[in-house]
Design a protein around this nucleic acid. Structure first.
Lengths: 333, 333
DNA sequence: ACGTTTAGTCGAAACGTTTCAATTGCATCT
DNA sequence: AGATGCAATTGAAACGTTTCGACTAAACGT
């Protein structure tokens, strides 16, 4: 029994008689034999390991991220791969380049994608297959899965207008993150602005560091800009407690006097808040899963296809949004 | 220039003259050469890859977990290792055994440790080094880092008694998790009970599924059992919104009429709640870091030592706890 | 001045697979 | 009956390192 025969049997690379296949597998579980992953990878030039690049975001980690990670890890395992977690910071390209060149991983799934993301040219030049969870400005030839924040922005404005709101503010993430071109922040704001414009409404926008105290201040400033505000859209879930405090501090009740909708957060976070907050939620688990699938497709298909997936967000109405209070309803200016 | 010389230069395995070392490193960055991780691992029998076993908990993932994961990943990388993420479920030992035997990883860091954890005999027999984040009932010969929940339980009771509370309830995680012997749940409850006993106070305890609705119901039941309750300790952060709702639903204000302390949650979760909730917080990031360090110690030291670390939790007083309201102050029964 | 150590380098074997070309035996076709 | 083709199997080379033993030349001790 040659070693090569065993290899063919295990991998199904060549036809093997029923008889020998049986013997091989019998011996395998008698001895508890498992082929050595490193030797396998070295010989075949395919390690069956992928990396998930999760640069710890400056705005702090949320539950959103762990949903990606967990579902990506599961999807990886289900396909017989292993997943290493890379956490090198976004700007530390040299570290990333080194990892890339050790030949440990067959490909990378990238999280936290910016409009102009330096990882893309890096991996392109290195010839390392990759897929994105999120998307860059130029997506030519790149497989990605992303939440449709353009749709989310117009959806949420339509929803609030349907409730009678006309003075709707927008609270973004921190200025550095926004200016660096972080996809969800930029795209949601943009579509909010468009929706407000076409509705002939006035846009009221601020960036805000991702913490409660900043949320309080920023909300006050938004209100100073437009005292008739009756609703707020935000992509900054960590600022929400401060916003809630500012609202209730004025003696307003949520949602009777003021409506609040969070875009891009996850249900489990929304339900921690009091009142549970209405969200427009990306399908995080599905995105993690698809991100891996898109990468594996490139690794395994003989003629890999570029696939670009935009998943709609779900509007989940909870206790923080309701009809515009009549006494405060402004006129369309 | 023999390949072996290069190897010695890179790894410092044998003395190399300054001259040749210089030439080697010069050539290395000219060519952008990085040694192949797989070949390296195969030849040396040390892959420099460790696994983090993170069995997705039945109670759902919290921010606590991602703090472990992120800090473990960072610590891994800082030490020149790679970290794969294993998510196979706790009861699926066969899958774990297979992963174990592929020889891909040099060792494992285990999360979500139960009092009687089946992974321990598995890895023992396989001769695979491991460390725990958490700890089992029998810790002989095992390196672990864990939060000191015994201390946390008595600390929190002492804190609340100091505020005048005498009727203090305890809300645990779900019954299945508790009965299966999940460390934090079991140990915190146990030390709460001891502290109450020695203070001559009546213990009021319930398990509760990890969601808001269940939190509401369980709190009502606790209150039915002891209507004089003025404070609640819980290790179930996902139930808290329901508890808060039940409290405020009775017209009680937090913390004026009722105090609430969460043990084992993280600050970022506590600050999402309204009011921000007082916590006894484990040092998650430190634990992730130490878990990795303990494993690497075993991998690298010629005479590995067993290290057992118990990290105290920090009491962070936020807006959910205060003095016992005078009019509701019960007598020690 | 002569063995003995030591620093520095080399070549070959080993790590445990996959892959390729070659070989065998057997059935099929003409 | 001989040529042809196919299924099943084999042995050897390759993958890119590390490690081991051996070698050289210089330094050291006496």
């Amino acid at each position: 029994m040659a070693a090569s025969t065993v290899s063919y049997a295990i991998n199904g690379t060549r036809p093997i008689s029923e008889e020998t296949r049986r013997r091989i597998f019998a011996a395998m579980d008698e001895l508890g034999y498992q082929p050595n992953a490193l030797a396998r990878g070295l010989a075949s030039k395919r390690s069956r390991i992928i990396a998930l690049h999760f640069p710890i975001p400056e705005r702090g980690v949320g539950l959103t991220e762990i949903e990606f990670i967990a579902s990506a890890a599961n999807a990886t395992r289900e396909n017989g791969y292993e997943m290493v977690l890379w956490t090198s910071e976004m700007h530390n390209l040299e570290e990333l380049r080194q990892s890339t060149q050790q030949g440990l991983v067959d490909g990378v799934v990238a999280m936290e994608v910016y409009l102009h993301d330096e990882r893309i040219p890096l991996w392109r030049e290195a010839g390392l297959p990759f897929s994105l969870i999120g998307r860059s400005a130029d997506t030519a030839g790149i497989s990605y899965v992303d939440a449709d924040f353009e749709l989310a922005g117009s959806d949420v404005v339509r929803y609030l207008r349907g409730l009678g709101h006309t003075h709707i503010g927008f609270l973004n993430q921190s200025q550095p993150v926004t200016e660096a071109g972080y996809g969800p922040a930029v795209r949601t704001q943009h579509s909010y602005e468009q929706a407000m414009d076409t509705a002939g409404l006035i846009r009221v926008v601020r960036t805000c560091p991702t913490n409660a105290a900043a949320g309080y201040d920023s909300f006050e400033q938004l209100l100073a800009e437009d005292p008739d505000l009756t609703a707020l859209v935000t992509v900054n879930d960590r600022a929400v407690p401060g916003v809630v405090q500012a609202i209730t501090g004025r003696g307003w009740r949520i949602p009777d006097d003021f409506s609040l909708v969070v875009v891009g957060s996850s249900g489990s976070v929304a339900e921690l808040m009091t009142p549970p907050v209405t969200t427009v939620e990306p399908q995080n688990a599905e995105m993690g899963r698809q991100g891996v699938r898109l990468l594996l497709e490139q690794l395994e298909a003989r003629e890999p296809e570029i696939t670009q997936i935009l998943l709609p967000c779900r509007l989940v109405v909870r206790g923080s949004s309701g009809p515009c209070p009549v006494e405060r309803r402004g006129t369309i200016s």
